[in-house]
C-alpha cells in the first residue's frame, strides 16, 4: 500500500552496556496513515519510548544500536538520512511531545520566544511575522495571547502542556508523537488537554502516535491500537478490534487489571508474575511464562503474525487456527508488505 505516512519494518533496537544487552525493540512493524491516531500501549520497559526515539533518531548514541529495520516516512527511510536532513525533519515534519511538561520547556526563556524559535527554524516567515504567528498558536491551544511574555514557571502543569503542544504544532507537522502527554496531569486537566488534542486532530489532520499505558485515554482519542510487550507488538487493530475483540492473552490480562468504575468486582484478575528482564528474555513467545494458555510449543518458537481480519493482527499461537495456517498467514502478511 502506498498511502502510508509512516511504515516501520522489522525495527530492532538494542541498548548495550559493558556486560549486558537490553533487547528493547525486537522486529517491530508498524503502519500509520495520514491523519490517523495510533495508540501505542504497554507497560514500563515494553519499548514504546524507544520506538518513538528511533523514529526521530534521537536514541542515545553511546548505548543504543539499531540492528535492523526501515522507518519509511513519506516513502523515504529515516534511518539513512543525514544528521542535517534529520534536523530539518524534526519539528517540521515530525514533532514530539514529551511526558513531563515541567522539564520540556526552557525555564529562562519566555513561552512566546520558545514557540517563535520553532517557527523561525522551520517556516519561511519574515522576522516581523514571527510574533504574530506564535501568538496565534497560543490562542489555538487556548492560552491568551497576552501571556506571550510569561515564563514557564508562571503557568500551571496543564497550561505548560498546552504550550508544549503549541510548539509541536506550530510548523504543522505531518506526524506528532506524544509520549504520555497527560500522565503527569490531574484528571480534570487531562480531560481539558485530551479535548484540545481531539479538536486539533480534527482541524489539522495531523497523524499521531500516542504513547500511553492508559487504555481509557486510548479509547477517547485513538483510531488504532498497538499493544506492546517485551519489545514487540503482540496485537494490533482498530479501536473496536482491540477493545471489543482482543485475542492476545496479554491484552486480555491488561484489560482485566483495570478496576472498572461501572461494574462491581471483588478481586481483579491479574496477570501473574512480572514483565520479563529485557536482558534475558524467555525463549519462544516472550509472554509464555505468564500466559494461562501457554503450551509447550510457545516456549520453543516465537509466534509470527496471524491476521484475524483486514485490520486485526495478533502474535499468538493460540489465536492461529492451526500451525500450518498460521504459517500461510505469516506468508501472506509478508507478501502484502
Amino acid at each position: 500500500m502506498n498511502d502510508q505516512l509512516l511504515k516501520i519494518q522489522n525495527l530492532t533496537v538494542d541498548y548495550r552496556s559493558s556486560n549486558k544487552t537490553v533487547h528493547a525493540v525486537r522486529g517491530l512493524d508498524l503502519n500509520l496513515r495520514p491523519g490517523e491516531t495510533l495508540g501505542l500501549v504497554g507497560e514500563t520497559g515494553a519499548g514504546k519510548t524507544t520506538t518513538a526515539l528511533s523514529i526521530l533518531r534521537i536514541l542515545p548514541d553511546v548505548a543504543a544500536r539499531v540492528l535492523s529495520g526501515e522507518i519509511l516516512f513519506d516513502g523515504k527511510d529515516l534511518l539513512t538520512r543525514s544528521k542535517k536532513e534529520m534536523r530539518q525533519i524534526r519539528g517540521r515534519d515530525i514533532a514530539m511531545i514529551f511526558q513531563d511538561p515541567m522539564t520540556s520547556l526552557d525555564p529562562v526563556v519566555t513561552v512566546g520566544a520558545q514557540i517563535e524559535e520553532m517557527i523561525m527554524l522551520h517556516a519561511d516567515l519574515p522576522r516581523s511575522g514571527l510574533r504574530k504567528a506564535a501568538e496565534d498558536m497560543l490562542e489555538v491551544v487556548g492560552i491568551k495571547r497576552e501571556r506571550f511574555d510569561d515564563y514557564p514557571h508562571q503557568f500551571s502543569g496543564g497550561m505548560k502542556q498546552r504550550v508544549v503542544i503549541a510548539i509541536a504544532l506550530s510548523c504543522n507537522p505531518k506526524l506528532l508523537i506524544a509520549d504520555e502527554p497527560t500522565t503527569a496531569l490531574d484528571v480534570t486537566i487531562q480531560a481539558q488537554v485530551l479535548d484540545l488534542m481531539k479538536q486539533l486532530k480534527k482541524t489539522y489532520r495531523t497523524a499521531m502516535i500516542l504513547i500511553t499505558h492508559d487504555l481509557g485515554v486510548v479509547a477517547d482519542i485513538c483510531d488504532a491500537v498497538a499493544i506492546m510487550y517485551a519489545g514487540e507488538i503482540v496485537e494490533y487493530g482498530t479501536l473496536e478490534d482491540i477493545f471489543d475483540g482482543h485475542r492476545h492473552p496479554y491484552t486480555e490480562g491488561l484489560f482485566n487489571s483495570i478496576p472498572s468504575i461501572d461494574v462491581e468486582q471483588k478481586t481483579l484478575e491479574v496477570i501473574e508474575g512480572l514483565t520479563p528482564d529485557p536482558t534475558n528474555l524467555p525463549s519462544g513467545c516472550a509472554f509464555h511464562p505468564r500466559c494461562p494458555y501457554a503450551s509447550a510449543h510457545c516456549a520453543e518458537e516465537r509466534p509470527g503474525e496471524t491476521q484475524l481480519s483486514d485490520t486485526h493482527y495478533v502474535r499468538c499461537f493460540q489465536c492461529a487456527p492451526s500451525k500450518e495456517k498460521e504459517l500461510q498467514h505469516g506468508r501472506t502478511v509478508v507478501e502484502r508488505l
Partner: peptide, 12 residues
C-alpha cells in the same frame, strides 16, 4: 466533573 473526566477504557 471529576467523575466525568475519568477516561473509560471502552469504545462507543
Amino acid at each position: 466533573a471529576l467523575l466525568s473526566s475519568i477516561p473509560i477504557p471502552k469504545v462507543g
